[in-house]
Design a protein around this nucleic acid. Structure first.
Lengths: 241, 241
DNA sequence: AAAATCAAAATTGCATACCGCATCCAGATG
DNA sequence: CATCTGGATGCGGTATGCAATTTTGATTTT
């Protein structure tokens, strides 16, 4: 794909887009995105955040009213979300939020383990001092959140840290795939939260791979990161039984 | 989370949304594809086969006549293809076949190296005697095609072998991602064909990892397979300079 | 009473119409 | 002569209407 900077960044002013439902999400700077992308992002977020439960039907006309758009752009958004695996489309059947399939979650984690090893190695090799400083700050906050037992906030920051590490690998294809998989798994993780033991263990693993990152041990960092992902996956899968 | 990624701090040029991963490739018998899926498959094939050259514009109304459908289903198909990275959609701009971007091809190969290692390991562990027999037959034909210097046929069978190996890993998410990336790279490979030296070397690598498969050395097979992919990538990238 | 049947309602799939942004070119301006 | 401006035109973005299919629920049949 050509240089194509972030999509739709020019003077194009799209309509206010009266996404009426759920004002609690309206804090985000959704402007500067095409209406189409806003729709995709909106529905995606509702699914990932569990606002739309797994298996819930998504009748087109109803959601059209909800979002104040017609069926055409909504259907186009649905194609994207189906491609990402978040919803299921079957001919002449009303779309549904993709069920959380344990077997598929397992498959996704297997892929993420592979991606995390590659991403971790690249990230460790490419991270600047500033990058590491930023990760350190996030990590310190993570530890503090664990100590304070702030589950929800911890969970969110944890995602951000892993996202940041993946981004540091400098491979946008990798980052995009990883992000999509991460979203698919997010729903399952939100439901199946850590138990206290796994939570502590997870924090310890974060400590470990951060130390390896500081040591400049790219291989070790990559292995530790992917092992962490594998253990997280095992833990999540256990809770889905 | 995801929506907050394009926030401010990141000046990176990461492109939004692409790729697909839904895992319904094997469970759907190709007997009755919806018109929509036929459209996607058709345009995808035209792009991958080079019938629609990289960078070529895709005016909606014109293609509607070509395929005998209206703009609505065509546009929906375009959303899918854009998510897969085969075409580019920008607001109020006519869609174009995604240019072959050397940097992106390099990124894709990096991901495929990681995926092939994982897929190879799983495939070697899961392959039945029948599976190996089938691969052997394909491999024998591949060697013969190399001897006969049948470039085009060799190229196609080579794809099939790698696809089959990936499929044997038994992870549909992995297989889908791999297939999408493979298609993106296919166009570049079709243009930048092997030179004779790399071709022979590639066949030798096939011999090598097939031997490791027979030996039941999953680790070795996985390493050999991913190394083969890395070398293939390097070779392709050399030709794109 | 349970199962099968069929018609009415609801919903998706597709086609068409309209609107607005982006591009191009003629004519004006310096 | 080069540049700028403003309207004409083409094409994508969206809304809406109609056709095809599924779902429903009531009625009939076993």
């Amino acid at each position: 794909m050509s240089a194509s900077a972030p999509r739709t960044r020019l003077k194009t002013r799209f309509k206010p887009a009266r996404l009426k439902l759920s004002s609690d999400h309206s804090k985000r700077p959704l402007d500067r995105m095409s209406l189409h992308d806003q729709l995709v992002a909106k529905v995606r977020e509702m699914i990932v955040d569990g606002e739309l439960a797994a298996g819930a039907p998504l009748p087109e006309r109803m959601l059209c009213e909800t979002f104040g758009v017609s069926r055409t752009p909504l259907r186009e958004a649905f194609k994207i979300l189906a491609a990402e695996g978040l919803i299921e489309l079957r001919p002449h059947r009303t779309p549904v939020v993709a069920p959380i399939d344990r077997a598929e979650i397992a498959e996704i984690f297997d892929v993420m383990v592979a991606l995390d090893r590659s991403a971790g190695f690249q990230a460790a090799n490419r991270a600047s001092a500033d990058d590491i400083t930023r990760l350190d700050a996030m990590h310190a906050e993570l530890v503090e959140l664990h100590r304070a037992a702030q589950r929800a906030t911890y969970f969110r920051l944890n995602q951000q840290i892993h996202s940041e590490i993946t981004r540091l690998a400098g491979n946008s294809v990798l980052f995009n795939i990883w992000s999509i998989l991460q979203r698919s798994v997010f729903r399952a993780r939100a439901v199946a939260n850590y138990d206290a033991r796994r939570w502590s263990e997870s924090v310890a693993e974060h400590e470990a791979f951060m130390a390896l990152l500081h040591a400049g041990d790219a291989e070790g960092f990559a292995d530790a990161l992917s092992l962490h992902t594998r253990k997280t996956g095992d833990s999540v899968l256990l809770m889905l039984d």
